[in-house]
């Protein structure tokens, strides 16, 4: 059993304390971790699998797997990053099951020029969010992000929605940092391009 590693004066992350208690069989400590991260795991799983039932299964399986593998958790990465990696793998497994015969991987380099150069250069309305009802807006955002290749989608979600750093995203996905960076740029630009259709300022002509 590993002990708490303290490097210099670095503070011990509260999650590490919970992990240590859970390793000793304290289920309540693990419950706290579940409550803290279940929403995020669910969101990530939904984004990858695009299927509600699969996402529910992923939440269960990811936490159970994490619980079983707690001994393998090294204090040198964040518990959350480690958990996300498990959740991403579980999600990809589910996605593959549904799309039998189709390669599903986040490593495959998606060769596409879409979004590498912005085409739609119309400026957006000053407050695009006032153009749509809340539920309409959610639908637009879902539809738009679902159109991205899974490898782009997941990088955008981890970096920009869940707020992981580039390094943490790379670690969670088993990708290199340059790969994360190039995907993030393309994901952001593609989403921007696609959202322009909905949010363009109708009172102005595009920049020519």
């Amino acid at each position: 059993m590993s002990t708490i590693q303290t490097q210099g004066t670095e503070e011990i992350h509260p999650d590490v304390l919970l992990v240590n208690r859970a390793r000793e069989g304290d289920v309540e400590a693990f419950e706290k971790l579940v409550r803290q991260y279940d929403r995020q795991v669910f969101r990530i799983a939904q984004h990858i699998t695009q299927n509600r039932e699969d996402a529910e299964d992923v939440v269960q399986d990811a936490f159970l797997k994490a619980y079983e593998k707690l001994d393998q958790f090294q204090g040198n990465s964040k518990f959350y990053t480690w958990l996300v990696r498990i959740a991403v793998n579980e999600s990809l497994m589910r996605l593959r099951k549904r799309r039998t015969g189709r390669m599903v991987s986040i490593d495959e380099d998606v060769e596409t020029d879409e979004g590498s150069m912005p085409r739609d250069l119309a400026d957006w309305a000053p407050d695009p969010e006032q153009m749509y009802e809340q539920s309409e807006m959610a639908e637009i955002l879902r539809k738009t992000i679902q159109g991205l290749p899974p490898g782009f989608r997941v990088v955008f979600v981890l970096r920009d929605v869940e707020g992981l750093s580039t390094e943490e995203t790379a670690e969670s996905l088993g990708l290199s940092i340059p790969a994360v960076k190039s995907r993030l740029l393309r994901a952001r630009l593609q989403l921007r391009e696609r959202l322009s259709r909905y949010f363009r300022d109708r009172n102005k002509d595009g920049v020519k």
């Binding site: 955002l141 879902r142 992000i145 955008f156 920009d160 929605v161 952001r188 921007r192």
Partner: peptide
């Protein structure tokens, strides 16, 4: 784009 995705809980 980033701001909007951050703000709206879509799932």
């Amino acid at each position: 784009t980033i701001e909007i995705y951050r703000k709206h809980e879509i799932y």
